[in-house]
Design a protein around this nucleic acid. Sequence first.
DNA 1: CTGTTAGCGCATTCAT
DNA 2: ATGAATGCGCTAACAG
Lengths: 333, 333
Amino acid sequence: MRPTIKHVSKIAGVSTKTVSRVLNGERYVSEETRDRVQQAIAHLKFVPSMAARSLAGKRSHQVALLYDNHSPHYIHQIQTGVWTRCMEEGVRLLAQPSDVASPMLAQHVGELIDQTRVDGVILSSPVTDAIAVLDELEARGVPYVRISPGTEHSRSSSVAMDDVQAADDMTTHLINLGHRRIGFIVGHVNHTASDQRLFGYRRALDRAGIPFEPRYVRQGDFDFASGEAAGDVLLDLANPPTAIFASNDDMAAGVLTVAHRRGLSVPGDLSVAGFDDTALASQLWPPLTTVRQPTRDLAYAATGLLFSGETVHRRLPHELVVRGSTAPPSIQS
Amino acid sequence: MRPTIKHVSKIAGVSTKTVSRVLNGERYVSEETRDRVQQAIAHLKFVPSMAARSLAGKRSHQVALLYDNHSPHYIHQIQTGVWTRCMEEGVRLLAQPSDVASPMLAQHVGELIDQTRVDGVILSSPVTDAIAVLDELEARGVPYVRISPGTEHSRSSSVAMDDVQAADDMTTHLINLGHRRIGFIVGHVNHTASDQRLFGYRRALDRAGIPFEPRYVRQGDFDFASGEAAGDVLLDLANPPTAIFASNDDMAAGVLTVAHRRGLSVPGDLSVAGFDDTALASQLWPPLTTVRQPTRDLAYAATGLLFSGETVHRRLPHELVVRGSTAPPSIQS
DNA sequence: CTGTTAGCGCATTCAT
DNA sequence: ATGAATGCGCTAACAG
């Protein structure tokens, strides 16, 4: 038979309530009593039943993570970050794949809450922007934190990187190498980060006094094929770019492929840069310079906010991983 | 206030026990009563409390999935498959990253079981081969199913693909194209699939009457760098292979990089093949021919076995995705 | 600082 | 085919 707090209380010579106090780290328990109880717990290898705790108490010691089909790499980073923080808190994690396209999503989330009474919810992109879900969570009074939300920023605590600054940094890096004709491939139109990355690109050009040329900017949608298409157009221009900065790595991989086909050496003839959205960079050849996003840390921090109850918007720093961008051909001589 | 079965029973004009019967799909409830109850449930938007169910009953309506650092792609496929099957069964999924290197793993799993009383556990590679975990689960009488176990095959139900046959198929494909000198890069030594893939390679050669040449086989460890190293050695041979079959796609990507560096065209000068362990294939250039593993289906099927209680070992079919292997240069005319 | 009493929302056992 | 009583293991609200 599995031991219960009753057994523990008997062995420790205290009431069940006192055991409960120790379990929940409540104050007003003497050092000595606490020790006795903890010894009894260790002795019996007692582990409290989640079911009983959540039925009797206000907390379930569980949190849910909502996510939708981003790249497996992204999901993995997110899960790892959230899970790590949950472990520290002694809380279990409920994985909840979601379909933001489904009109039932909010209802499913509502049922999840009712069934499990989770203590809080972490929303990762793109579920962060499902208004119906936010409404549902608020209607039920469930705390939630969002990772890189695209809209409704004031509705909850959130954690994000600075996409504008990251794109600015990367563009500035290319400019500092000597590039003046820098192609840019915009990300998917529905993705807020796309606008921000474009903005950062423009800001860096402005600051350097390089005129913005619309023909160096192409629309993509975050996948390999759109990167290929945009790369082809950019390299067909009369005065083609000496560097191409794609809004993510899938598109950057597309550009690399196009360069291959044309016999361009990378980065000798063309420097290619991107973000590490899918962690492709380390497996590509020729190499890619990328913005390393702190996805795991974002998830970890977001979960921390959930537990602390703070309402804030945190920014976490990114990092430039230079691996394959050089000076433009003209000044390499 | 959240509705309970008490409210439902009042509205339906039956006892709480009858509501419980409907909830659990028990027999001996008249059609008419069942309908009335279901209407009441829908009317109140009643959702049963998981905590109360698992505290009172024998089932928790939760299963746990144990996994360790494989590629994010692998984990994602596994999770999706398991989760999909769980949804069909109305069961929640507890994500449980594990560290097979930790001596505490079995204990952590034991605590998980005690805390949550999960109805069953799915083990994915490499947790499948953590003997201490199997012992712990059996000691507690918790049903479990393993996905592609490497050892102790008789201890539980399992689901797997046929790695021998898959490697055989791929090798045969290359032979049929006209290749006679086929390089092979073995996977990580601790991975059972590595042996099997090597065996399949040899079997196909034998059947075709092609002598096995040890110098065409190199040891790798499933990562990009080991693929590069092995590729270099193979292409430096006096009579180099016209095709290289790597035991996974990370290593195959390494081979592609080496080919690039040497100015070899792929697949014109060299055909490269692999498995889709990390789903790299679609993002690589030049293209790669791969064995598509039914990872998602394996997970789905494994979860089904958990619910059915059957004790069997199932094999699921793989698929060859030919995308970039051609006849060897010598017979391309 | 510690104990007592009650009850969370269900499934179970045993009735009928 | 349905209902009544009991308790799962814990925490809440109080009392001391």
